[in-house]
Design a protein around this nucleic acid. Sequence first.
DNA 1: TCAAAAAATTCATCTGATGACTTAGTCAAT
DNA 2: ATTGACTAAGTCATCAGATGAATTTTTTGA
Lengths: 230, 230
Amino acid sequence: MSAVETAMHGLRAKIASGELAPGQKCPPEGELAAQLGVSRSSLREAIRAMSALGVMEARHGSGTYVSSLEPAEILKGFALLVDLFPFDSVLELFEIRRALESHAAAGAAARSTPELMAELDGLVAQMEATDNSADISALDARFHEAICEAGGNSTLTGLMGLFRSRGRHFNIFDSAEGATVREVSNKGHRDILEAIRNRDPASAATATAGHIAQSEFWLKKFRPAPQLDS
Amino acid sequence: MSAVETAMHGLRAKIASGELAPGQKCPPEGELAAQLGVSRSSLREAIRAMSALGVMEARHGSGTYVSSLEPAEILKGFALLVDLFPFDSVLELFEIRRALESHAAAGAAARSTPELMAELDGLVAQMEATDNSADISALDARFHEAICEAGGNSTLTGLMGLFRSRGRHFNIFDSAEGATVREVSNKGHRDILEAIRNRDPASAATATAGHIAQSEFWLKKFRPAPQLDS
DNA sequence: TCAAAAAATTCATCTGATGACTTAGTCAAT
DNA sequence: ATTGACTAAGTCATCAGATGAATTTTTTGA
């Protein structure tokens, strides 16, 4: 086994065994390297890999810590990765969103609260009041995220946030039929909103599936170029 | 921006722009480090992080390559990560499996083929013929995987394989009521199988959701200790 | 032509040194 | 006693150079 692999396995073992608990500070690089029997360089590469996976975090001048290990938290680090997925995969991500966000919407409908309704009402109103595609995109993302949160599964919420971030680079609101897209999209949001308001899980799921399928359809139709920020 | 971040952003940019295409060989470390304006050590840490994310792969003596960037392929590298998730998160993963594998099962039912049915029949027969928990666990995993594959979404298949690997460390077939667990589990598989054979997507989804919910129930009930291999 | 040997290329690892950032502690001024 | 600046120690970040190990390419000899 290579030195870096040795170090990674050692770290993983220390975490799995509880010797290094979530949030805890690790021994300094020198000491840890000696414990694991590798050089500081190799240990640093191992820590860098664990950081990329969201398992550890090195803070300059302070120390190296084990992360919270909460999936929702860890998933946030993968945005950079999802950005590199090929187009065909994006369609697969949409299919997953369709299944999963429908599920979450049903959960949200079952436990709908006045606070949730107030936020969703506000978001929909704002979306209907503007035609700035960047604003709409942000509001739309928050609308879907709020519903996922209300679904009560934080891992699911994190996963959807990640997948949504990828789809957003294809700005369907800016396409040739932007006006139509916005109109139909708003209608979809209204349907979801009312289903949740009526505490009707089945309708909420159906409306969500339809809404996301619609986005998927447009994406396939226009296949706009992705817009990466540098 | 730190040196390693600089290098990672540079690599990501080269990949996103197509300068480094999937499967392509990168320039040697020294040259790449010079291009990106960082030392070899820092570049190596960046490459190590990209490797952990499944985006690049360094082959000793040969060179460093960009990976295929297929989500299903990349997901395989995260098993080590999922192994560290806390127990409560595992329950959330099961809920996601319930929603997603149901979806895949419906797809499998819609496009069921003789080959698929033959494999599933064989797997179920084998599961019913043994009471070795390790064998059952492996057969069960393949049963679910085959259905996911038939669903036609490779990203979903990869994701489910990853989530399933975590749940498998809790060996519910070895629990106090192992015999009952096996019996009810076999019944669940039969129900899924017949629904797919009958090309009945709704039943396939329902049966799958029920089957996974049952596993989830047992997991909560027994909460067996996870068994990590070193 | 083919196979073995040699050379070149490239990643892997280690060591040592220096810089930068954070934290804890000290101590004086208010 | 509280605050604030300053100091010192601890720790990660980065770099440079040397050596080892694996692969690939080239050369060589039969």
